[in-house]
Structure formats: structure tokens, C-alpha cells
Design a protein around this nucleic acid. Structure first.
Lengths: 189, 189
DNA sequence: TCGAATGTCTAGCAGTGCTAGATTTGCCTG
DNA sequence: CAGGCAAATCTAGCACTGCTAGACATTCGA
């Protein structure tokens, strides 16, 4: 029993080791540098070991993405301002900072279409948490408008800004002006 | 001289043939199905011919993307409503329809980071035209706000909605509600 | 008709994700 | 403590990718 336990624990540790290695490699050199061979080398095992933990490379990326959602949720929660200040702006800033500082992670989460269940299925808790933070930020300004729909619009705007900025499609020196314009529009000023 | 001309014309035709084949293949089976071998087979030449026209696969995708921008611009121009109706809404609908109906093309244009010059460099005319259509749609509702910045916000929102919708991250049956909410927010209602 | 230049193809390299089968490792039993 | 067995792990390889060097064919001008 205890041996079984130890083995399971070791397996779980290695599982996480692979996820961390993939994330680190992607953040350091981009996802195109994350090959099963380099990943195997980084965790000091041979390639087939990866496949005893994950169904394929996609599954590894998916695992990284889900944990990334957890981290985003944590960051946004930490960024909740003291009462009185704009929750909407604080959330937007935190979100965009995350996207800018962890582009590879953000890419896995929301750009690459790794088919994480998003709809009616069993949505990972990390995703729920992240979206929940967005909802909480939108709630004070929703007014008559449908909360969830407005949150989706808010999220879309943030996502659009994040990805177009990362692709150098927007003027870099107008970031703050864009953010302010977007926020005041959504606030229904 | 006429021989030279004929050769140049044939080369140009084949150049376009490659671009069309790549677009068709991508639209039919996704970009992951667009390999240099399959593309060569489709145009009935061997692989190296592709490399005599383009520096590499990226350059082919880039060419497809730029022509896609031209098409988007054309569609949005055609969708300009008669006076009185909302230009903003017409532009948004046209943009989102394009993104939904030509997902592979949209992907090449704005999702894959094919480094098309966007900033100060020599921006392709097709891109200018597409952005110009957005500016024209925003202009009537800009009011005191900076036109170009507001257009960037509008574009970001559209892009976010387009990509998150394509990735099944948004509730499909709330598409119109989201669009209306976004438009009325930007309109400064 | 021949030589040369242009154009095109065959064959191959180094890399990818993934896996079958051999090999080693570490456990439990006699 | 030795032996056998099962589980974990690795080696080697497949079919594919983007890309290219060098052989081959074609077409032009003299």
C-alpha cells in the first residue's frame, strides 16, 4: 500500500515536472521550440515517458493552459482594488499585464485552439475562476445590462487588445488611451 | 521582349496559382493540412518550384493573408449601408461574417503571427484599405474621441469576438446580444 | 543544329510527433 | 539472500515536415 502510494506520488510529481518544463521552455523560446525530444531531455527522461503521462503533445499544452488559467485567476483576484476604485480597470490592467508578460502561456490558454471544454461540458475549475474574476469586475458597472453577456464583451475586448498588441498590430504608445477609451465605453459613461 | 513578357506573365500566373491553391487547401482542411508537398501536388509542380516563387512556407501564408485583407476591405466597403443606417453595425456584421465564414483566411491574416509589416514600415495597401473601412465606420460615432484610437478599440473588440467565438469560448446563442451590447457601448449611447 | 542558359525535378537532410518491441529496474516470494 | 516476474523505461524506427543541392530536361539564340 505504501509502496503503491509512493509510486503514485512520484508519478504525480513527474507529471507536474513535465508541465512545468513545457511551460518554462515555451516561455523561454516559444511553443515552436517545445518538441517532445527537447522536453524529454529537459525532464531527463526519454520521449515515451511523456506519452505514459499524456496522450500527446496537445494534452501537455492543454495542461499548461489550464494551470495558466489558475494563475491568471489568482493574479486578478490579488489585483482587486480597495473599495471605491474601479474594479473594471484593475481587472483589465491585471489581465493585459498577464497577457503581455506571459505571452506563451497566454497563447496556450486562449490563442492556440487546444480544445479545452468551454461550453456545457465539464469546464476546468481554473477556467471558471478566471471567468468569475471577470464577472466580478464587470458586475458593479453592469446596470440594466445582462451580466454574463457584458462580461463576454469585456473579455473579448481584452482578448482582442492582448492578441493584436502581441502581434504588433496596434500602436504601442497608445496602449493606455485605448484602455481608457474601452473602459469608459463599457462603463456606460 | 515578347518572349520575356510571356515568361513573366506565366510566372505571375503561377505565383497567383500557388497563392490560390494554398488558400483553398487551408479553407478546405485547415492550415495544418497545407504542406509544401500537398501544395506542390495541387499546383502540379514539384516542391522546389514553390521556393523559386516564395522564400518559404511563411511567405506563402503571408501572401494569402495580404490578399485576404483586400477581400475583407472589399466586403466591408460593399456592406456600407445607405445613409441613415448605422455604419458601425454594418461594418461589425460584415467583419464578423467574414471571420466566421473564412476562418482559415482570417487565421492567416490576424491570428498566426506572420510578421506582416504593421507599424511604421511599408504596410501593404490591402491592410490600409481594411483598416480604412473600420475608420470610416467609426468616424460617425467618434465625437470628441480620438478617431484612430477608437478604431483600434473597435477592431480589438471585433477581433476578440471573432477569435473567441471561433474557439468556442463564447455562448453561441448570444452572439447578437454581445454585438448589440458592444456597439451601444462604443456608440456612447 | 548546336551550345548555353534557364527552368524543373529527383533525392536527400535534419527535424517533427509518436510507438513497437527490447531492455533494464526493482519488487515479492521461496 | 537468490530467483523470477512484472512494471517501468529506453532504443530504434516509422511516416511525416520544411527545405535544398545537384542532376536532368527544356528552350532559346546563333
Amino acid at each position: 500500500m505504501t509502496i503503491q502510494n509512493r509510486r503514485e506520488r512520484e508519478r504525480a510529481e513527474r507529471h507536474q515536472l513535465i508541465i512545468d518544463a513545457a511551460r518554462e521552455l515555451a516561455e523561454a523560446e516559444g511553443w515552436e521550440a517545445v518538441t517532445t525530444r527537447r522536453l524529454a531531455e529537459k525532464v531527463e527522461y526519454s520521449q515515451p515517458v511523456l506519452y505514459s503521462h499524456f496522450k500527446g503533445k496537445d494534452a501537455i499544452v492543454r495542461a499548461v493552459a489550464i494551470q495558466g488559467c489558475g494563475e491568471l485567476a489568482r493574479l486578478m483576484r490579488k489585483a482587486r482594488p480597495a473599495q471605491g476604485e474601479s474594479r473594471l480597470k484593475a481587472a483589465a490592467v491585471a489581465y493585459l499585464e498577464f497577457a503581455a508578460k506571459r505571452p506563451a502561456l497566454y497563447d496556450a490558454m486562449f490563442v492556440q485552439q487546444v480544445d479545452i471544454p468551454f461550453g456545457t461540458d465539464e469546464v476546468p475549475q481554473e477556467l471558471r475562476d478566471a471567468f468569475g474574476e471577470l464577472v466580478a469586475a464587470v458586475e458593479p458597472v453592469a446596470g440594466e445590462r445582462d451580466l454574463e453577456t457584458l462580461t463576454e464583451v469585456f473579455w473579448s475586448s481584452l482578448h482582442g487588445i492582448a492578441t493584436l498588441t502581441h502581434g504588433h498590430r496596434l500602436r504601442p504608445d497608445h496602449h493606455e488611451a485605448r484602455l481608457d477609451l474601452m473602459l469608459s465605453a463599457l462603463q456606460g459613461a
